[in-house]
């Protein structure tokens, strides 16, 4: 078993920490913008869960939202393993991620 805990992921841009948008950040914005419930629901399903206990052979995907920046983004992701979370820790690093250009 492998544990996804987004609280254990760190993002930086140009060497400076950046903070991702938590899924709970969206609800008040949507209410202010009168976004239909169906659209809110679909958007939530595109997000990577905050926490998930990945089971054997399980695959789940999703998006994470960061403040837009032109600087190269790095991600340090950490996962604990084992049903009791006492297994080995898996650490991954991704560098040189970039925001897509905004065509508008």
């Amino acid at each position: 078993m492998l544990w996804l805990q987004l609280a254990n992921w760190r993002f930086s841009a140009g060497g400076q920490p950046i903070t991702r948008f938590h899924r709970d950040d969206w609800k008040p914005r949507w209410e202010e913008m009168n976004i239909p419930l169906a659209s809110q629901s679909t958007f939530r399903w595109t997000l990577l869960p905050e926490n998930l206990d990945f089971q054997p052979d399980e695959r789940e995907g999703g998006s994470i939202i960061l403040p837009r920046t032109r600087a190269p983004i790095s991600l340090q992701a950490e996962f604990v393993t084992g049903s009791d979370k006492r297994g080995r820790v898996v650490r991954l690093q991704f560098d040189n991620l970039y925001c897509a250009e905004d065509p508008s």
Partner: peptide, 23 residues
């Protein structure tokens, strides 16, 4: 606002362990 999706950071995670309970 100046906040947009960072592309679509699709993160697929795949664990290979097996359990006896569900065998």
């Amino acid at each position: 606002k100046a906040r947009v999706l960072l592309g679509y950071l699709m993160l697929l995670i795949y664990s290979h362990a097996s359990t006896a309970q569900d065998s």
